[in-house]
């Protein structure tokens, strides 16, 4: 598997830190972080990551709104987006699929498993 760059957009700093460490440890991938939808969009534009992990529940601009914004930008709309969501929201999976996200990863997760889960979703 080649080197990948992952952008995680999550308002929780601890989640960013742990995911960054876990993915790096498990697969050696680079992980970029953003604490809000708006910052995430900017980072996606400048860094062009291979995949975006997007938290659904964020204050101000939530994951769905952020996804729609990402889709509206021609230079980043091709980047696959995987939503991070709590179990309780699993019922919404169909809605997420209809939106056009590449997949959903349920919280809580073990960050060491993320590279495997991402690879499986995106057929890397």
């Amino acid at each position: 598997m080649t080197h990948k760059r992952v952008l995680i957009i999550d308002d929780e700093e601890t989640i960013q830190t742990v995911v960054q460490f876990g993915i790096k440890l498990a697969a050696g991938w680079e992980v970029l972080t953003a604490s809000s939808g708006l910052k995430g969009i900017q980072t996606a534009q400048t860094e062009q990551p291979d995949v975006i992990l997007l938290d659904v529940m964020m204050p101000d601009m939530d994951g769905i709104a952020t996804f729609k914004e990402l889709q509206a930008c021609p230079e980043i709309q091709q980047i696959p987006v995987i939503l991070l969501t709590a179990k309780a929201q699993t019922a919404d999976k169909r809605q997420f699929n209809d939106l056009g996200v590449s997949g959903v990863i349920t919280k809580p997760f073990n960050s060491l498993d993320l590279p495997e889960q991402i690879s499986r979703i995106l057929h890397w």
Binding site: T17, G22, S111, L112
Partner: peptide
């Protein structure tokens, strides 16, 4: 091969990091 979390060394390092955090 696929489950990196099952690699004992990764698991230990990850756990140490979680505890530190």
């Amino acid at each position: 091969a696929l489950s990196a979390r099952l690699q004992p060394e990764s698991q230990q390092q990850y756990l140490a990091f979680l505890n530190e955090t």
